[in-house]
């Protein structure tokens, strides 16, 4: 890695904003175009940016492999949310029918379980994107 102050400073300054934007897309997935996948991809891209600018080790420090393994298995939570429907006596992944308040259209807390599902997907996609890049980059080095 060559030292490049401009690239490093820009990346450091931009990363929080990129991640904030990603979170916004995830949290407003049921209100505006976007959702878990798109927001997760943005957050994953921010981590790839860190790795490109600061090197793989530095990026690994920010988010360890253990953590991304856990996050990648967050799909389990998705399934568990799906079980809420069954527990409430209706079908798998049911939301409104399971008695979860649907809220007023346009509010952040509306649309039943879609918000929760979006968050889970967002984490999953972000960590997958990160892992994909890191694994490929490491393969290339090793």
């Amino acid at each position: 890695m060559t030292e490049d102050i401009i690239v490093k400073t820009t990346a450091r300054l931009m990363t929080p904003f990129i991640q904030m934007f990603g979170l916004y897309i995830i949290l407003h997935g049921h209100l505006t175009p976007g959702g878990g996948f798109q927001g997760g991809a943005v957050i994953g891209a921010s981590m790839i940016l860190l790795a490109v600018v600061y090197g793989l080790e530095e990026g690994e420090k920010r988010m360890s492999h253990d953590l991304s393994t856990v996050l990648e298995s967050s799909t389990i939570v998705y399934v568990l949310i799906g079980f809420i429907g069954i527990a409430a006596g209706v079908n798998f992944l049911a939301s409104g029918a399971a008695g979860i308040p649907l809220g007023r259209p346009g509010d952040l807390l509306s649309g039943g379980m879609i918000l929760a599902l979006n968050i889970v997907i967002g984490f999953k996609v972000a960590s997958t994107g990160k892992t994909l890049f890191y694994t490929l980059a490491k393969e290339d080095e090793g």
Partner: peptide, 13 residues
């Protein structure tokens, strides 16, 4: 379908 899917994600953990 869910049972093997769920177990698959548990494997790495």
């Amino acid at each position: 379908v869910v049972a093997p899917l769920f177990a698959a994600y548990l494997m790495p953990l």
